[in-house]
Design a protein around this nucleic acid. Structure first.
Lengths: 224, 224
DNA sequence: AGCGTTGTTGAGAGATGGCTGAGACAGGTG
DNA sequence: CACCTGTCTCAGCCATCTCTCAACAACGCT
């Protein structure tokens, strides 16, 4: 395991380094945001431990920039502050975990291990199919730049379809993924919602992203 | 997204359920470890939110047992205690993430999303015979790049033939593989569908992939 | 060649699957 | 309370698909 530690406090950095080396991991340490960004971009690490308070470029900026460069290495953020909003910000910017200082070293090790096991998410958070994009976190859907406003159910159906682009999914699959176990209605709801979605995301743009696969279900394809 | 929530405190469970439902996810709630284990094993969820303090079987035991049963659904553990050892134990037992109560609901959502983002099931392989390809997942058939649109029955017959390229299969085999057990009609249907398929996948391209083996049945061969 | 057997095909009746408009109902909001 | 939005049911319509039947063609055997 190769770990990059970005932490400007030399003492803290040394403590972390020792802990990780004791695990048998290879550790590189840098002390400012710029070097951290550069190393993380090109260094091929299994995880990055990133302090928030950094000279030259703070932790938030480093993650955001990393994700913008399509680097998906797991990032664990460290901070002295205890504000919950920091966590949110960190998550929204693309960090994968968060620790509040001071923390026992074995907690950091355990959670780093979990991060590494989870692996780098190959996919960015936004789903795309042709000119259609769906952001699960922001709860937005766009086609050619214009904002669409699906209802919650429509959104859920579309999200499922977009997680299976090009694959024919059955109405039962959709029902199963979107409606909960207590639902005992007809599969016709799915047909109805497909109809709603077509009116919402296809008709106004003259496309046909949702294909019917007779006897099977539906397939979402990438169109412009 | 289908989420299972295992939490014995009815109030807490309801809060979590609402948060997740507001995301457009399908949520099932159970209140004890045994039911949680049963549902998680067979329920096909995208993630499980699991309290540690549970009647009948605690959260640790549930994860351990789940992993022993080779169920790899991502698990997020919840606990009221703030003991660091809980985290370690949880990770070691196979949990994928961990939250200490109380937590802001959007943190839970963000981290659940991160958990779900990782695993996408890979598709089954595409079947090929010369210039003819059939993708069972996408439910598509192509010859030399152009999309063919077989009917469901035609597709089923073709899929069976393509899983047996170069092998002569009898009409009885095809009937058995494609039609259900209650079918009591004539083997002539098979002949009729072979005819349809030839018109669909061979005639327009001037090939002859489906050969008749007189007295035996049919054989699909690879041609360009 | 002649003949029975086996395979091919066109026509068409009936069944099925999918789409949609109308409307009931619930929950939230002014 | 009236109104709006979102969810879901229902029933009718339409296009397509499935399968049967029967005539016809091809094959292979004596």
């Amino acid at each position: 395991m190769r770990i990059l530690v970005v932490e400007d406090d030399r003492n803290a950095a040394e403590t972390v380094r020792r802990t990780l080396v004791a695990q048998g991991w290879a550790v590189d340490v840098v002390h400012d945001g710029d070097s951290g960004l550069a190393r993380a971009t090109h260094g091929d690490y299994h995880a990055v431990v990133l302090d928030i308070m950094l000279p030259r470029r703070n932790g938030y900026e480093v993650v955001r920039e990393l994700r913008e460069r399509e680097v998906w290495t797991p990032v664990m953020m460290l901070t002295a502050k205890d504000g919950e909003y920091d966590q949110i910000d960190a998550f929204d910017l693309g960090a994968d975990d968060y620790l509040v200082k001071p923390f026992p070293s074995h907690v950091m090790v355990a959670r780093l291990r979990a991060l590494i096991r989870r692996g780098a998410p190959e996919r960015p958070a936004v789903l795309t199919a042709g000119s259609l994009t769906l952001d699960p976190a922001a709860h937005t859907v766009r086609r050619r730049g214009t904002d669409l406003t699906p209802t919650p159910r429509e959104f859920a159906v579309l999200e499922f379809l977009m997680r299976n682009v090009g694959v024919a999914v059955s109405k039962a699959d959709i029902l199963h993924a979107v409606w909960d176990a207590h639902f005992d209605g007809d599969e016709n709801v799915v047909e109805v919602y497909i109809g709603y979605l077509r009116r919402r995301i296809d008709k106004p743009f003259g496309c046909a992203s949702i294909e019917t696969v007779r006897g099977v279900g539906y397939r979402l394809v990438a169109v412009d």
